[in-house]
Amino acid sequence: MIRFGVVGTNWITESFIEAARTITDFQLVAVYSRTEEKAKEFAEKHDVKTTFTSLEEMAQSKDIDAVYIASPNSLHASQACLFMNNGKHVLCEKPLASNSKEGQFMIDTAKRNNVLLMEALKTTLTPNFQVIKENLHKIGKIRRYTASYCQYSSRYDAYKAGTVLNAFDPKFSNGSLMDIGIYCIYPLVVLFGEPKEVKASGYKLASGVDGEGSLLLTYDDMDAVIMHSKISNSYLPSEIQGEDGTIIIDKVNPPEHIEIKYRDGSKEVVSIQQDSNSMVYEVAEFIKLLKANQLESSINSYHNSLITLKILDEARKQVRVIFPADQQVNL
């Protein structure tokens, strides 16, 4: 069994636990929260006996093999490195870090300690993303990737009423690009690699984070168009356009219905049924790697995570979104 601890007691951790408990060899053994009351409440709900209010004590525990980190983005790097320096494997929520400098430091720490570090970007690990990869050849020379993920945040109402919650606070390295845009960017990187050029625009909120924006990414013989937002909704599908046909993807997070429309007018549905809790696949990948003594995912790889962070860095620079984490010299 792989004995897991969880850092964070929010809804995403709830979803993670629900998914993970369907995977053989997963065992939840510890919960961390800043307050003892919250830690005990969450642990009792999930039938866990061990709680921590000190990350240092949790990292030093001999009863934990791996941790799932679902804390605010700005804490990912320091918390992950603490655990890795204590020999723990880390599954870290997306984005892996606040910026590429932090991301590289995390990767170096993982390598130095011979532990597994993987970004929990679930889309690229789902069966239907694999379907997309396997069917790319059918649409001929690929010329354009378009991805739209625009989802009005329930926390935006509080923001407009004068309360800046974590989702719109630069102190936590948040905003539309980091929370929503990454779901469009990471699959692009996995499929097509690093772009030659990044152009970004967006609307910067008074709090200092971006509320929405767009990216145009240039490759040798194709381009990519990305739209993201936390202050409006979009109902557009995403597409990969080729000279012989187009793959239409209902949504990027996660893809569920995938159809190819060929230039001759014919259509082909290629999507398959997958688990309703798509986090199952990231947990399965993580545990599979550990059981095989592999310390890096070939899909959510260090290379792909770093390229994604570099794109996010450049896009934020152009939109003039700066996080306190960008100013830190040392972790």
Rank of each mutant, 00 (worst) to 15 (best):
I2N: 10
V6K: 03
E14F: 03
S15K: 03
F16D: 00
A19W: 12
R21E: 14
I23C: 08
D25E: 13
F26K: 08
L28F: 05
E36I: 12
E36H: 05
E37H: 11
F42P: 12
T51A: 03
S61H: 03
D65P: 12
V67A: 10
Y68H: 09
Y68A: 08
P72Q: 01
A77M: 01
A80R: 08
F83E: 11
K88S: 10
K88L: 12
V90F: 05
C92R: 00
K94G: 02
K94R: 07
P95D: 00
P95Q: 00
P95N: 00
P95G: 00
A97K: 01
S100F: 06
K101I: 13
E102H: 08
G103F: 03
D108K: 08
R112C: 06
N114F: 08
L121T: 09
K122I: 01
L125H: 06
F129T: 00
V131S: 03
H137D: 15
K138P: 07
K138D: 09
R143A: 02
A147Q: 07
A147G: 15
S148V: 13
Y149W: 04
C150S: 15
Q151A: 01
D157L: 09
Y159P: 14
K160V: 15
A161F: 04
T163Q: 07
V164S: 09
N166I: 07
D169V: 10
F172L: 05
S173K: 02
S173E: 03
Y183D: 00
C184R: 00
I185K: 02
Y186L: 02
V189L: 05
V190N: 09
F192E: 03
F192R: 06
K196R: 13
E197Q: 14
K199V: 13
A200Y: 06
S201Q: 09
G202L: 07
G202M: 08
D210C: 13
G211P: 14
E212F: 06
L216W: 11
D221T: 15
D223F: 13
A224S: 12
V225G: 03
M227H: 15
H228V: 00
K230H: 11
S232L: 07
S238C: 03
S238T: 03
I240W: 05
T246V: 14
I247K: 04
I249F: 07
D250G: 11
D250Q: 02
P254M: 00
E256V: 12
Y262C: 03
D264Q: 07
G265E: 06
G265H: 08
S266Y: 05
K267N: 14
E268Y: 10
V269T: 15
Q273S: 13
Q273G: 12
Q274M: 14
D275M: 11
S278A: 10
S278E: 06
E285R: 09
L290D: 08
A292G: 10
A292D: 13
E296H: 10
S298F: 04
N300T: 12
H303K: 15
S305H: 04
I307P: 06
K310M: 14
L312S: 11
L312N: 08
D313K: 07
E314W: 05
A315W: 07
A315F: 05
K317W: 05
K317G: 08
Q318Y: 06
V321C: 07
D326T: 15
D326M: 01
D326A: 02
